[in-house]
Simulated assay, not measured.
Amino acid sequence: MKVAIVTGGSRGIGRQVVRWLATEGFAVVVNYAANQDDADLAVKEVVEAGRRAIAVRADVADEVAVAALFDRAEQAYGGVDVVVHAAGRTVLAPIADLDLADLDDLLRVNVRGTFVVNQQAARRVRAGGAIINFSASAVALAAEGHGAYAASKGAVEAITLILARELRGRDVTVNTVAPGPTATDGMMDDRDDVAIAQLATQPPLQRLGTPEDIAEVVAFLAGPASRWVNGQVVRANGGIV
């Protein structure tokens, strides 16, 4: 039995990743930070489909909590084969105006959180497994207002490549998925119709991405067809960059 941990698995892209990995036969550990109801619903959906899943709360930037998350996965299912680190935070503001308290929180979740989760994954993922982080196409787009967010995701990309090299000989791949504008509930709720329409015109494919689009890329990177893809950033954005 293959086992996957999905951080941020209770909502948005993470929730769709949970669905896809469960469909691919993984037992899934759904990590969440605060919203237990959403996590329980994600688990219920998987279990009702005849698959295995549990929900485990953990702050991804807390090394003790993350170690306990991995312990729980090993206790429940015997090991860990895939780690999808989808948890993250978005803060958008011009560099001159950004509240430094917001910067500290952003870096704690996106940079320290990625480092802590990847540290445990590097120690525990079994041979033949995969570690999949989440960046954002904002790193390459370098749009105004995205300075702090893009910087945090640039750090994720650096961690990914270096960890891929450090796991030499382990038969564990490490890659990053960098979505473009994606129609998650959070994104749709934070923008008006005009802003959403403008975002949808950016890709040559002339639409927003969907959580399903991104989850399919993750499922590929988690599966056997991608074993020669390692240390890469897959920009799943419809051709924006």
Rank of each mutant, 00 (worst) to 15 (best):
G8S: 05
G9Q: 00
G9T: 00
S10P: 14
V17Y: 01
V18F: 03
A22F: 02
V28M: 11
N31K: 09
Y32L: 14
A42P: 07
V47F: 02
E48F: 11
G50I: 02
R52D: 02
A53L: 08
A53W: 08
V64R: 15
L69S: 02
F70R: 06
A73Q: 09
Q75H: 06
A76T: 09
Y77L: 07
V83E: 12
V83A: 08
A87F: 05
I95K: 01
A96E: 14
D97Q: 15
D99F: 02
L100K: 08
A101M: 03
D104S: 12
L107H: 11
R108W: 03
R108M: 11
V109K: 13
V111P: 12
T114V: 06
A121F: 02
R124W: 13
G129K: 03
A136S: 15
V139H: 03
A140P: 00
L141R: 14
A142Y: 03
Y149Q: 04
A150L: 13
G169Q: 04
N175Y: 10
N175C: 08
P179A: 15
G180M: 11
D189N: 11
R191L: 12
R191M: 07
D192M: 03
V194K: 07
Q206S: 10
L208R: 00
T210C: 05
D213L: 09
V217M: 14
A219V: 08
S226I: 00
G231H: 05
N237P: 01
G238H: 07
